[in-house]
Amino acid sequence: MNKTSWFNVVSLTLGFAFLYIPMIILIIFSFNESKLVTVWAGFSTKWYGELLHNEAFLNAAWVTIKVAVFSSTIATVLGTMAAYVLVRGGRFMGRTLFSGMIYAPLVMPEVITGLSLLLLFIGIGLDRGVLTIVLAHSTFSMCYVSVVVSSRLVTFDRSLEEAALDLGCSAAQAFRLVTLPIIAPAVISGWLLAFTLSLDDLVIASFTTGPSATTLPIRIFSAVRLGVSPEINALSTIMIAIVTFGVITASLITKHQMVRQKREEQEAVRG
């Protein structure tokens, strides 16, 4: 499959242009002097400066990061447990219901998830704020984590775990010393996925938050509804930069780890 035809080159070029030009324009105009986002009036970083003095955005960013750290950590713990149970747990009562509940939130429209959680929180009289957003985000992200982790658990060689057990490890030791290091890259990428999903979420956060906690997406959404503004462009640029840096670092780390793991496995086989 190594033929490069002009058709493939053209479709890839156009496709990636479509994916990237809007973001490039967004980034360029975050450095625009003028308040108008469509007319270039010279280079300036003043919108970044204004952003730093905008209390509302800074508070919202802080709330968002808090929510993302807590919810992705809870989601990773619960999601890894769920994946382990689904792949290794064998049969148990309610297994079908359990796997159904793991997959359903992945396809559930956000408006429905948000609405149903809000109705629950009001029903049990829980004050809405950071806590309720964390609960909501943990719930849907744990499902993503469990999908990522279980796809790794399915492919790994079970005999390694069995060997550890035969050599006298307890089940907990075998998990900690053998299973966990092998699935670690999947657990980490699960955590990162949960973290970004939480950073990104507007709909579920809007339903489950109260007046005390406004997340960044909620703040951006209400600003953007009034139209385009250079300040939002600056904020978007910062967020794009962080994500790009994160994704590239993460992919380099996983690549490195995969190479190392393969080498170790080969060495182990050779004895």
Partner: peptide
């Protein structure tokens, strides 16, 4: 692959917002 996945990690809201400046009447 990385080029396809990268936008997926970038905020959904920001990607939609990017089009507001492009498609408006005096947009790009």
């Amino acid at each position: 692959m990385m080029l396809v996945i990268l936008p997926f990690w970038t905020s959904f809201l920001i990607r939609v917002y990017a089009w507001m400046g492009i498609l408006s009447n005096e947009g790009f």
